[in-house]
Amino acid sequence: MGQTLVYGILNGSLYGIIALGIALVFGIMKYLNLAQGTLIILGAYIGLYLSQLGLDPFLSIPVVMVALFLFAAVLFKTCFSRLINFDEEEKIKNSLLISFGLMLFLDNLITVIWTSDERSITPAYSGITFELFGLRIPLIGLAGALLAVILILLLHLFLTRTYFGQSVVAVSQDQEAASLMGVNVSLTFLTSFAISVSIASIPSMLIALQSFSPTVGLHWFNKGIVVVILSGIGNIYGVLPAGLFLGIIEALSVYIFGPSYREVTGLAVFVLILILVPKGLFRRRGAA
């Protein structure tokens, strides 16, 4: 039981970071990026390529981050920039559709380049665990959880302490007013999108250390969107607790119903929440 919870919490922090990228785009830009999961998998393949060159997975995170940042910037310029001035509902709908097409495109492009085999990166330390209060804790999972916490702190500092971060918050609150106050909205959008995709480099690496194949992107996007809805749309501080919540629920369901219904439980919770409490569980007043 305790061991199950440990895995639940570690998985949950992974869900939290995946959700962070989606929540950032959704909260600030009102874009729903269905391709986020696929971009995570793309990052995993870049990481695989780097590890074949001999780079340690954790050291390759910054490289993958830069690669995804540039890729996302190009993607935004070519596909998403025309939606900037749409009203909110049209923005969500069109970005959802465009990213849906992109997801299919990228999934199959990845299959063509890397074949559909299941891959994973296994450095020497991948099996290491240590004991704490009689519970086994895997080293990589713990590192992932720490990265999640650091990432959210950094993002918080970025949004509250830097000029650019403040302009991001301004755009998320009122795009038109921000634009009138001299904020460069399209640059803010471009950068926010690229940042939120580059955040995917951390889940990329954590997933690459488990296992991945070209078409699992949607599966990971689903984990992310469940957490986003749980935490309340656009609330980036809610994603970690909501991620842990989902991780623990899944772990409990494995404990009770067995592993084959793990996915179903998470999704069922998600649908129930969409129907019953559409505003999310961890909503904070005045959160960005």
Binding site: G101, M103, D107, N108, T111
Partner: peptide, 13 residues
């Protein structure tokens, strides 16, 4: 791979 889906995804966008 499923190249037709690749083409269709791009066309869809």
């Amino acid at each position: 791979g499923e190249i037709h889906l690749l083409v269709f995804g791009a066309t869809f966008v």
